[in-house]
Simulated assay, not measured.
Amino acid sequence: MSTKHPIVAITGSSGAGTTTITRAFQHIFRRENVNAAIIEGDSFHAYDRLQMRQKLKEAEAAGEHSFSHFGPSGNLFEELAQLFAAYGERGTGRCRKYLHDEVEGAEYGQAPGTFTPWADLQEGTDLLFYEGLHGAVVTDRVNVAQHADLLVGVVPTINLEWIQKLHRDQNLRGYSQEAVVDTILRRMPDYVSYICPQFSRTHVNVQRVPVVDTSNPFIARDIPSLDESMLVIRFADPKGIDFPYLLSMLHGSFMSRPNTIVCPGGKMGLAVQLIFTPMILRLMSNRRQALL
């Protein structure tokens, strides 16, 4: 953790609304004139797309059926921890970018599914903003979570996560349902060991819960929308949270526990801005005081 060079980490997986939440944070940064260094978690995968396919084949041939992007074997946890530590100390660090598609690849003159070269972050940024799978990961070798000043968990219910993956991989990537189910099962040990525990270390969790039937995710025809969901927002430390204000601003919301507010899923972007704007402003105020 660092007062002069704060780190905000959004940790979550597909189907929860990480894109909506990241966009809401970008609105906060733009409105409050915060110069943020944006880091994507995919940048710290251990292998590019072709290498990962080869590693999967090798793992299966060796009888290893739990090799995945969710665990340490498929990621560079040490390098991620080094980036967080370096940014907290000096406001810089080394990173790269994973090129997801043809558009991103063309921008850098590289094939999609590859990484750009490692490079130093631009100097002079106000904070580091990470969005990915492992912003709060802890293993017997590294502790990424200890470096973050604000940790936000973003997670769907497990059936919703599976529906999201099934639809994306079948419709956009051309995989069979059997192949997608195999991936889900292969990832499960790492999901249990490295993804779930992070949400006990976060300062705020945002969980998307569908209010339509998702009891059998393998036959779902559509991905439940935000308007077909409720958000369960849990604060690890509710001290200082203005719950009456949030309830008044988020129509249809209520409190289910003293540290938990529930609101309509369609209010996700607004809820994020209402909740996290004061927190970002507090980080920036503390940063200015520390730099005097």
Rank of each mutant, 00 (worst) to 15 (best):
D242M: 05
F84Q: 08
N205G: 04
V211N: 10
R30G: 10
N171M: 11
V206I: 15
R221K: 15
E102C: 05
R31I: 13
L292S: 15
F254H: 11
P112I: 01
V206G: 09
R257N: 08
L291N: 15
Q273C: 02
T157C: 03
Y194Q: 03
S229V: 04
P210M: 09
G265W: 13
I233R: 02
K97Y: 11
H100Y: 13
I38E: 12
P117W: 02
A81Y: 00
A136I: 01
M284D: 13
F25E: 02
N171H: 13
E131G: 06
E60C: 13
H65P: 11
D237W: 00
V144C: 02
D48Y: 07
V152M: 06
F67D: 09
R94I: 06
D149E: 10
E178L: 07
A85M: 10
N205R: 11
V181C: 09
T18D: 04
A62V: 07
A81Q: 11
L291A: 15
P197L: 08
R90T: 13
T214S: 10
S73M: 14
N216Q: 10
S43R: 04
P117H: 02
Y87I: 02
F254Y: 14
V209P: 06
K57C: 12
W162R: 15
C263H: 05
P264S: 09
I219W: 12
M1I: 10
R234D: 07
L231G: 07
G266L: 06
Q273Y: 02
Y87R: 02
E123H: 10
R90Y: 13
F129L: 07
E228F: 05
F218D: 05
H147Y: 08
A271F: 04
D140S: 00
I219V: 15
E64G: 10
I184M: 15
Y175L: 15
M52W: 14
V103W: 05
V180I: 12
M279K: 14
F25I: 02
F218Q: 04
D182C: 12
A62L: 08
S193L: 14
L270P: 06
S256Y: 06
E58L: 11
T22R: 15
E228G: 04
E178P: 01
C196D: 12
S14P: 13
Y130S: 03
F115P: 06
A16Q: 03
I28D: 05
R187A: 15
R94C: 09
Q110F: 11
A85I: 04
Q122Y: 08
R141T: 04
N259Y: 03
L83V: 01
Q82K: 07
H27M: 12
D101C: 01
P117F: 00
R257K: 12
S193P: 11
V152W: 00
G135E: 02
A81F: 01
E60N: 15
V232A: 06
Q273G: 05
